[in-house]
């Protein structure tokens, strides 16, 4: 039986998951909440966690080499995308490394932290939001908006958890290449996409040109030179 700890309100499921991981909780354990008052995004940003969304952190202890651990983030995106396609009836895209999109709008986001010897996979899915705050309207969507239906969050939670675990098992048993192939099939961002990439050193514009054997994104700049993106925000170039 999977252990799920559910809160009406919590500051951050990531913080609570860190506590649980440090006490040695089992792989697959979940902590979730109806509302997060201090949801965490990338680099200290906040993750908008309004009523209507599904917010949880899953603690994973994958049996992979340390250097292959980043590929778990691709497997997480694949797992969430598969579950939403299969159980919520939406057609989704994956933006490297693991944003789940409908068109160019974000349906689900994943933040992953390696801490206390475990992966804390923070997953936020926009489920029931009928309207988003002004600043997110152009970039976010929800299952309710896309399907005009209500969706049972606890059912989706279990579907996503099972799907994520099966993708992680593919990584464990078949290796990095298997996950990269699945990702390349599921994502329109792997090749031939004009993108901007935000790096600490500045913004780069180019066209995506596949993944390296480690799963990093190759971007070909307009002058023909190639760069490998190991981390950074990738966006469609026409948004800028």
């Amino acid at each position: 039986m999977r252990k799920v700890e559910w809160h009406e309100e919590i500051d951050s499921t990531m913080r609570r998951a860190g506590e649980m991981a440090s006490k040695g909780c089992e792989s697959g354990t979940i902590v979730g909440a109806e509302v997060q008052t201090a949801g965490q995004g990338r680099h200290g940003r906040t993750w908008e966690s309004q009523q209507g969304g599904l917010y949880f952190t899953m603690i994973l202890r994958p049996k992979v080499e340390m250097r292959d651990l980043p590929v778990v983030t691709l497997a997480l995106g694949l797992g969430v995308a598969d579950a939403l396609q299969m159980h919520a009836g939406v057609s989704v895209d994956l933006r490297w490394p693991n944003d789940v999109l409908v068109g160019e709008k974000k349906l689900a986001g994943i933040l992953t932290v390696w801490q206390e010897g475990a992966i804390l996979a923070g997953i936020g899915v926009n489920v029931g939001q009928a309207v988003f705050p002004e600043e997110l309207r152009e970039v976010a969507t929800s299952l309710a908006l896309e399907t005009q239906k209500e969706h049972d969050k606890q059912f989706l939670l279990r579907a996503i958890a099972a799907s994520v675990e099966s993708q992680v098992r593919i990584l464990e048993s078949s290796g990095v290449n298997a996950v990269l192939r699945l990702f390349a099939n599921a994502s329109s961002y792997v090749s031939g996409k004009r993108v901007t990439v935000e790096l600490p050193a500045g913004v780069v514009i180019g066209t995506t040109a596949g993944l390296t054997p480690e799963g990093f994104l190759v971007v070909r700049r307009e002058d023909g030179t190639e760069m490998t993106v190991t981390a950074g925000g990738v966006r469609p170039a026409n948004n800028h």
């Binding site: 932290v113 390696w114 981390a231």
Partner: peptide
């Protein structure tokens, strides 16, 4: 160390004193 949106917290394994940092913030 961030790699593909995996935030990898690097922890000290020994007791001691930091005498040098060899990498700049934001560098690969």
């Amino acid at each position: 160390i961030e790699s593909m949106k995996l935030m990898n917290e690097i922890e000290a394994e020994i007791s001691g004193t930091i005498v040098k940092r060899l990498v700049d913030n934001g560098q690969p």
